[in-house]
């Protein structure tokens, strides 16, 4: 699946990533009575007043906008959990905490549409913002380590939006490294290594099998 907004680079726009995040399930408490919805993506409901049920985020937001339900914020979107996560993020400069894959988008949708359902919304909002900033800084630190003929960068527990932001940059950077560190350009220079010692100390390269 490729992004539709920019056919040239097959990139996703932030709105497209948000669209995908809307398929995540979330718990709502309806205040009306409605038969089950039988949709292509699954069956949801039945909707009974005060009986919690699981629906996709887009449906939750649609019902919320009509005042037909309250949304129960997910467990991770609470002051305690976020404070814990933020501290853990700050403590380990390399490792990322396992947050939901779409945490940026989900939190933004909930802040926009269900602000009255989230306790301590200002605190929660600034915590999410802090976590995002800390994590993004860590991504940059991780990316600084791209060297030579890398085929990929491995960073665990990145979220969808974070990957999406760095994608155009990383793709280009990897292509450039791949080109400049190609064996045709470099291997010849090993014979003259003594002239430029600080340039030529290469780890042995693996040749990609075709």
């Amino acid at each position: 699946m490729a992004g539709q907004s920019d056919p040239h680079f097959s990139l996703f726009s932030a709105e497209e990533v948000e669209f995908m995040a809307e398929d995540e399930m979330i718990e709502i408490v309806p205040n009306m009575r409605m038969d089950p919805l039988n949709l292509l993506c699954g069956d949801f409901g039945p909707f009974l007043p005060q009986i919690a049920t699981q629906v996709p985020l887009w449906l939750a937001v649609a019902l919320k906008r009509r005042g037909k339900c309250t949304i129960r914020p997910p467990e991770w979107l609470s002051v305690e959990k976020l404070t814990e996560a933020l501290e853990a993020e700050r403590e380990s400069p390399r490792v990322f905490q396992p947050l939901p894959f779409h945490y940026v988008e989900i939190s933004r949708l909930l802040f926009d549409h269900a602000r009255d359902d989230i306790p301590d919304i200002y605190m929660v909002r600034s915590l999410v913002e802090d976590i995002r900033n800390v994590r993004f800084h860590k991504i940059e630190i991780n990316l600084e380590e791209i060297q030579g003929r890398a085929h990929a960068v491995k960073i665990k527990n990145l979220s969808a939006m974070e990957v999406n932001i760095v994608r155009p940059f990383v793709v280009r950077a990897l292509q450039a490294f791949y080109k400049h560190d190609s064996p045709e350009m470099i291997d010849q220079s090993d014979t003259t290594a003594n002239r430029r010692p600080q340039v030529a100390d290469h780890v042995p390269r693996r040749v990609v099998r075709r």
């Binding site: 030579g148 450039a176 490294f177 400049h180 045709e184 430029r196 340039v199």
Partner: peptide
């Protein structure tokens, strides 16, 4: 034969700066 190594070295050291500033 040193141009290849020069390019790689230059790109490697300038890449970080671009990354941080961008």
């Amino acid at each position: 034969k040193t141009i290849g190594a020069l390019l790689l070295y230059a790109f490697k050291s300038r890449y970080k700066d671009v990354l941080i500033k961008a």
